[in-house]
Lab assay of single mutants.
Amino acid sequence: GPREVTMKKGDILTLLNSTNKDWWKVEVNDRQGFVPAAYVKKLDSGTGKELVLALYDYQ
């Protein structure tokens, strides 16, 4: 199956793709996968990378 990404509340993840309104593709610890968009919030990183903050645990 697809590689699952797990996250804990407060984690910072790299946002790869947010074109789908329900599932965003993120990368964390060299793993890529989809997380519910409602579970993360975009951060203003000030760099080229888009980052998101995990609002809830997800696994």
Rank of each mutant, 00 (worst) to 15 (best):
A38C: 15
A38N: 12
K42D: 03
I12Q: 04
E4H: 15
R31V: 15
M7D: 01
A54N: 01
K9Q: 07
E4L: 15
L43K: 02
T19W: 08
N20E: 06
L51A: 06
I12F: 04
K41C: 14
D44F: 11
Y58Q: 02
F34P: 02
G33V: 15
K25W: 15
T19C: 11
A37K: 05
Q59P: 15
K49W: 08
P36H: 04
T6R: 11
N20F: 06
Q59C: 12
K41Q: 14
G46I: 13
T6M: 11
G33Y: 15
D44V: 11
G10M: 02
K41Y: 06
I12S: 02
L15W: 01
R31S: 11
G46C: 12
L55Q: 04
A38L: 09
G46Y: 12
N29M: 08
L43Y: 07
F34E: 04
L51K: 09
E50Q: 14
F34M: 07
W24E: 01
T19F: 09
V35Q: 01
L43I: 15
L53Q: 11
L16H: 03
D57C: 05
E27S: 09
G1I: 13
E27F: 06
L16D: 00
L53K: 07
V26T: 01
K21Q: 09
K8N: 07
G33T: 08
T47N: 14
V28T: 10
A37L: 02
N29C: 08
L16E: 01
R31Q: 13
I12A: 02
N20T: 05
K42V: 11
K8T: 07
K25E: 14
D30Y: 06
I12D: 00
D30M: 08
W23D: 00
S45P: 08
S18F: 05
Q59G: 12
V28L: 15
P2T: 13
L16F: 03
W24R: 00
P36V: 05
D11H: 04
I12R: 03
F34L: 06
G48I: 07
R3I: 13
G10C: 04
D30A: 09
I12N: 01
N29V: 05
L13S: 01
W24T: 02
G46F: 11
D30V: 04
L53V: 14
V28Q: 11
Q59R: 09
V40D: 02
F34S: 03
N17C: 13
R31L: 12
Y58I: 03
N20C: 11
A38R: 14
Q59W: 10
A37I: 04
L53E: 13
K42Y: 08
D30S: 11
L16Q: 03
D11Q: 10
L51M: 11
Q59S: 15
G10S: 02
V40C: 12
S45N: 13
I12C: 05
F34H: 05
R3M: 15
V5S: 03
T14H: 09
E4T: 15
Y39K: 07
V26F: 01
A37M: 04
R31F: 11
L55G: 01
T19H: 10
L53H: 03
Q32G: 05
A38S: 15
A38P: 06
N29D: 12
T6A: 13
K8Y: 07
G10T: 01
Y39N: 06
V26E: 00
L15F: 03
R3L: 13
K9M: 07
K41L: 10
V28N: 13
L13Y: 06
N17Y: 05
Y39M: 14
D22K: 12
G10V: 01
L55D: 01
G10F: 03
T6H: 13
Y56G: 05
K8Q: 08
V5A: 05
G46A: 12
T14L: 14
N20K: 05
V40T: 02
V5D: 02
K25V: 15
T47Q: 12
P36N: 04
M7F: 13
K8D: 03
T47D: 14
V52M: 03
K42L: 13
Q32S: 09
G46S: 12
V5W: 12
A37D: 03
I12T: 06
D22Y: 15
D57Q: 04
L15I: 04
G48H: 09
P2I: 14
K21D: 09
L43G: 02
L13V: 06
S45C: 15
N17Q: 10
Y39F: 13
L55Y: 03
Y39V: 08
E27T: 06
P2K: 12
E4S: 14
V40W: 02
L51T: 08
K49Y: 09
K21Y: 06
P36M: 04
P36G: 03
P36I: 05
S45I: 11
N20Q: 08
D57T: 05
D44I: 12
S45F: 11
V28S: 12
L15Y: 01
V26I: 09
T47H: 13
L13W: 02
N17F: 05
G1P: 13
V26P: 00
Y39S: 13
G48M: 08
S45A: 11
P2C: 15
G10Q: 01
T47L: 11
G10R: 01
G10D: 04
Y56E: 11
E27H: 05
G10N: 04
S18D: 14
T19N: 12
K25A: 08
R3P: 12
G33P: 02
L15K: 00
R31Y: 10
R3S: 12
N20P: 03
N29K: 08
V52T: 02
K25C: 15
K21R: 10
V35C: 04
L55T: 04
R31E: 09
V35P: 01
D30Q: 09
K41E: 14
D57M: 03
M7H: 01
N17V: 08
Y56F: 13
F34N: 03
V26L: 04
L43M: 08
M7P: 00
W24M: 03
L43A: 03
T19I: 08
D30P: 02
A54W: 03
K21E: 09
V5R: 02
N29F: 07
G48R: 06
T6N: 13
A37N: 03
I12Y: 05
N17M: 07
D44Q: 12
D22W: 15
L15V: 06
V40M: 06
L51G: 02
P2L: 14
F34Q: 03
V26M: 01
L13M: 10
L53S: 04
G48P: 07
A54H: 01
V28M: 13
S18I: 06
